[in-house]
Nucleic acid binder design. Sequence first.
DNA 1: AAGTTTCGAGACATTATGTCTCGTAAATAA
DNA 2: TTATTTACGAGACATAATGTCTCGAAACTT
Lengths: 197, 197
Amino acid sequence: MTEVQRGRPRSESSRRAILEAVRELIADVGYDAMTFEAIAARAGASRQTIYRWWKSKASVVTEAVVEGFVQLPLVTIPTTGSLRHDLKEWIAIAPGASGSSSEDGARAVQVIRGLAAAASGDSHDAELLYEHLTGPAHQALVARLEMGKTAGELPHRSDCIAVADALLGTLVFQILTPTRSEERLFGVVDALVPANG
Amino acid sequence: MTEVQRGRPRSESSRRAILEAVRELIADVGYDAMTFEAIAARAGASRQTIYRWWKSKASVVTEAVVEGFVQLPLVTIPTTGSLRHDLKEWIAIAPGASGSSSEDGARAVQVIRGLAAAASGDSHDAELLYEHLTGPAHQALVARLEMGKTAGELPHRSDCIAVADALLGTLVFQILTPTRSEERLFGVVDALVPANG
DNA sequence: AAGTTTCGAGACATTATGTCTCGTAAATAA
DNA sequence: TTATTTACGAGACATAATGTCTCGAAACTT
């Protein structure tokens, strides 16, 4: 199956340096301004080396995400209070929220928008991107919702996956949108999680 | 206030031709491939004429949207059956749904992704874009939800705006995402609209 | 030692951007 | 009418990024 490699092997340090450069640049200058030249320059690599292993900017970004160089701070959901309260805490912590540091928040928002831009091109990359980025957050949400269901805060017939879809979808949409409003997101939580239980 | 114009007035036909070209190109080739040169060529105008009146590609696209040259087919919501049923019909008709023509659907999806890309740049353009694109759809949703509330299909304490936020946000997120699944969107409807009423 | 493949560096043609000039067209002002 | 002012299409121009190519050196296999 796997042919024995002949000749000089691929440089792992160069590969790592390129993915590191992507991680830094997508936060510093954004996706559009992150050119192949800029990546190569920051990584101390040659442009040709990038072209040799990746076919597009989106594919480099995708690998940086899949390899864990780029991550989103969405996976941590509190379990300290009621389901409603914890979900609202989660929203307040989310990138772009007025509560979080405007510095980090703005960078995270730029990353998310950049990843959305990368995903809008190739559909294969898009699948991997969303799987590795929103996947963990989605799983964490489902887990927290199941906890709430066990505690009787959610009807036992509720579809936790659907509720997680709605929460995550609305949140990301509002991050991509300039109309980000915590209050309206709180309203979505209230609409999805009954007051009585 | 308004000074009397001296010299040759701005050509309205040229302006319209440019916005028409944007409408065609954003569906034909997408946002990225829609260059200033391509717009000028299709509009039969000079590149300089575009640069004279718009400062960026996003601003041309924004004006095309604001002036109604580019529209989304999301505003029509059936009122023929139950609230749940009608909302699912609406989702099935939405762009990118497997039910709609794959030809038109793919074009509409490309338009939406292009507009998201345009909005990711300037925040002022983004505000106008989302206001004119999702605004009407949002209003139509709220209206349909209010109808359902009157009919007792929605608790009278429900926040129709929040429910509309969740529905539209989830839908657009799934359009931007390769994981578009009607079934999961139907689950979101079920989670937001109680079975009993 | 010979052969193979990658490396960084950079040349090269192509394409899009944004600014500029040119001659012409269409309006107002004298 | 004539001069002035502004917009127009066309295209030149410098800049920047893309993607392909070549080069000599490095690293590994046989």
